[in-house]
Design a protein around this nucleic acid. Structure first.
Lengths: 224, 224
DNA sequence: CCAAAAGTGTTAGTCGTACACCCATGT
DNA sequence: ACATGGGTGTACGACTAACACTTTTGG
């Protein structure tokens, strides 16, 4: 490879995040309003250009922090978008990550150096987004559905534990299906991914519910 | 993003392929011997740098053709490698694809403009490879195992059909497990991914075996 | 007619699903 | 004591796994 060859130059890397939360039974995604060009004034996913001395995840976390104030979240790769004209100014490869967080545990900045607004919006009423972000989001939603069924991604939504009714509601909201309480509990326990703690916590009734946590190991399994 | 900022410059994109085949019960991967620097004289996966006016898959297929003579194969994304020093000369993001082909259907060039040798080697006797290709290969093998169980990736190994004993051997070779002939057949048929044809073909015995083909639809399913 | 591999069916055990009652707490 | 949601067990059907004999072809 000849570094001087212009065909190898002028390409950059976008890191892009689809960060989800579930709020009262509604799946929402975090979007920001852009303060600068390209696409000034438009909404977009939280994203930015990678520096040449940065790992992908480090760059993405930097962008997420700069544009939303949110730090220390789990993000995982799910796809790459390579359309040559997906960014107007130059060829930018888009590396897309997804995450899911409890929005109550983070302070979202409404305005930053690079954004004029930020919000959690229901995934079925997302506006037109900059770049190819609507396409990326659609792909992220599909992947999220698959991953909550096949992997223990929800471990990162509940770092300090969860109750059965609580996590069942999450599965039902994201997958848009209802599950039988008794069978749900049996199936999730049967995966071996979680374990009981001695704590209890109230979810929405009066009787306190047992708190469970995800174990460390994380083999791929069909969960639901 | 300020295009003039040097932190956004000097990064390139590698497209990398782990192309597998199964040869007499042995899973093999295609590697090439490098004619030029970096890593002249070393073996590596089939890979190269992406042009700034190319889609990822187009660039990868160009590289595969240039370095092996092989054309028209299915390749699918499986991971991204972003370690800053994974390439010695400059920061190169590595976008990794995997494929599986019937090596008898392709003519492999032993030498090309950019390679001095090329070969299918058993995955348990792969030499030290250039860049981070050993790591990428290990990751590809894991993914291949998962995908033959969860997706219809073997459709691309058998574009014109397969017999039950034949495809069972492939599953057994890659997953290093044996399956009961009767149950294997029932389970694969139950996925709904395949259908019978009117053709028959001899695999290794004297009695001809029915030929099956993969259907068009390709929903993710657990196969084995 | 013998060898080699292809093709098929039944049974037992396991897993998933459907379903109804008691329990702990707050008001 | 009542309302609200949390917690549990059982029975039935579906799927998975184990297993042996018959069929087709070539030599």
């Amino acid at each position: 490879m000849d570094k001087k060859n212009p065909r190898y130059q002028n390409q950059g890397i976008h890191v892009i995040s689809a960060i989800f939360t579930v709020d009262k039974g509604c799946t929402k995604v975090l979007i920001i309003k852009r303060k600068y060009n390209p696409f000034v004034g438009m909404w977009s996913l939280v994203s930015g250009a990678l520096y040449n001395d940065e790992e992908l995840l480090d760059g993405l976390k930097r962008e997420v922090k700069e544009k939303t104030g949110i730090e220390n979240i789990h993000l995982e790769l799910f796809d790459v978008f390579s359309n040559i004209h997906r960014s107007p100014s130059m060829r930018m490869l888009g590396i897309a990550y997804l995450g899911i967080v409890d929005k109550e545990k983070y302070q979202l900045l409404k305005e930053t150096m690079k954004t004029t607004d930020a919000d959690w919006v229901p995934i079925d009423s997302v506006p037109i987004l900059a770049f190819d972000h609507n396409e990326i989001l659609a792909c992220a939603i599909d992947t999220l559905k698959r991953r909550i069924r096949n992997t223990d991604i929800l471990k990162y939504l509940y770092p300090s534990g969860f109750t059965m009714p609580e996590i069942q509601k999450i599965y039902e909201s994201i997958l848009e299906k209802n599950y039988d309480r008794r069978n749900f509990r049996k199936k999730l326990l049967a995966t071996g991914l979680i374990e009981e703690t001695s704590r209890t916590e109230k979810f929405s009734g009066n009787k306190p519910a047992k708190v469970y946590i995800f174990k460390e190991n994380s083999l791929d399994r069909n969960v639901f």
